[in-house]
Design a protein around this nucleic acid. Structure first.
Lengths: 144, 144
DNA sequence: CTACATCCTCTAGCGACTAGAGGAGCAAGA
DNA sequence: TCTTGCTCCTCTAGTCGCTAGAGGATGTAG
């Protein structure tokens, strides 16, 4: 086996994860501590790149770091049941669907606001009026 | 005019904004510094409650604090054009629509993952495999 | 007078990074 | 060999919008 190693910058380029983020992942134990050169620079091999790609993809799908930590542990133990992985993915799916529903409601209200704005004076502005409208139930805050 | 004042706890109950959050809003200048009793307790009147409700509603719609600061300034100057308010609302709408599109894509991928999972061993798990799949372009990370 | 609720200020923590300071290592050209 | 300029190192602090907790003052009901 030819052991091919990369510097952190090259690993970042290949994986699409930024250099400081890679160091951060090492710090929080998502990535094993990289081996080092004599000059104290981190070295990465293909397995590390695979792991980074895994993490990046999972982050893109919105999995939290703790969920990814579990998924990585599962990946490292291929003989276990994948029920746990399935549960994590299902929970994430449910979360995404809740977010979509919530954002669709926001979208409708924003559309109404914007549509009714006559772009005149603030005093008559529907955007401001809608926000000032106190006839709203106390709901939960929408993230992002 | 009977000037009716509330303690912070009552203001929180009426506005649906938590006590520490009200203090936080004062600290960052979103709310004017409340008047105080002799015993140094904050006092709120109806105008403050209106302002709090405005902020809460705007936060529910996902406006950032800086945007709300601008919207509040606009509200305080009813003679200005509401073009700025309109622009802020439109930007937020566009953002929400981008998020929805992005979440819909995530939803599809998660659904595929979950559907293909045979709930057997990790070694054959589609969830893990999908995440490990390196044939992905480098896209942007999805928040939340 | 004694509980107890509510209030005060201040500091630190959350998640997942990101930015910047201040310095060391390293490869290539003059 | 020297120097330029890039990459790398560690460490600390900042981002956003709160939230939690410590430690103490004030207010109110029985």
């Amino acid at each position: 086996m030819t052991k091919v190693d990369f510097a952190i910058g090259e690993a970042a380029r290949q994986s699409g994860v930024k250099v400081p983020t890679i160091r951060y992942y090492e710090q929080i134990g998502l990535l094993p501590a990289a081996s080092r050169t004599e000059g104290n620079r981190r070295l990465y091999d293909r397995r590390d790149l695979d792991r980074l790609a895994f993490i990046r993809h999972a982050r893109e799908l919105g999995f939290e770091v703790e969920a990814i930590r579990t998924l990585l542990t599962l990946q490292d133990n291929p003989d276990q049941s994948c029920a746990a992985a399935d549960a994590i993915a299902k929970a994430r799916l449910a979360e995404v669907e809740r977010r979509i529903a919530s954002l669709n409601a926001l979208r409708e209200e924003l559309k109404r606001m914007v549509k009714q704005c006559a772009s005149g004076k603030i005093g008559d502005c529907r955007v401001i009026e809608t926000l000032a409208d106190t006839t709203h139930a106390h709901g939960r805050l929408a993230e992002a």
